[in-house]
């Protein structure tokens, strides 16, 4: 039986050539279909928000700003519940960014890791993971808003 080392064979391809090959063969996302679905789903969620706000203004006598806040909070509740029921991930699979960008998607990004890691305890599992995605959002949102506030102060000096 032969015991000699025969090297090569090696595959006849440079990493650069392979990169081009991968890009050619990997299927692309259906950008137009996805955009239409995102428009429909996102539009629908915002319409539901608008209907809630209208109800809060007309039937509960809230001011416009309070009604907007209450509408946002209600949608967060709905998004959280749909995540718990295992429905929201299907909405996003269908509607893409239409389900991610509205606050319902924000609620989904908070609840889903908390659910997922619940077995790791109530402090690190639920409490900690609640902020896996919400943490970065708050960090960048609040930090940028403070920057905007400071610039505003400086401009008024």
């Amino acid at each position: 039986m032969s015991n000699s080392n025969l090297r090569p064979p090696v595959i006849n391809l440079t990493p650069e050539e392979y990169k081009t090959m991968v890009q050619r063969i990997s299927p692309k996302p259906k950008a137009i279909k996805n955009a239409v679905l995102a428009f429909m789903v996102g539009g629908l969620i915002c319409s539901i928000g608008q209907i809630l706000i209208n109800i809060y203004i007309n039937y509960f006598g809230l001011s416009k700003v309070s009604a907007q806040t209450a509408g946002t909070a209600t949608l967060i509740l709905i998004g959280a519940l749909l995540t718990g029921l295992g429905v929201y991930d299907n909405i996003v699979r269908f509607g893409g960014a239409g389900g991610i960008v509205p606050v319902t998607g924000f609620a989904n990004s908070m609840v889903s890791p908390a659910l997922e890691y619940k077995r790791e305890g109530y402090v690190f599992g639920v409490g900690g993971k609640l902020f896996t995605v919400a943490g970065p959002i708050l960090v960048y949102g609040i930090a940028t808003s403070i920057l905007v506030g400071i610039i505003y102060v400086l401009l008024r000096l």
Partner: peptide, 17 residues
């Protein structure tokens, strides 16, 4: 999914590949 990607209930569109 939990270990390598993201929570199963997190909404996400998987790539076609």
């Amino acid at each position: 999914e939990r270990q390598y990607r993201m929570p199963t209930e997190q909404g996400n569109q998987r790539a076609m590949y």
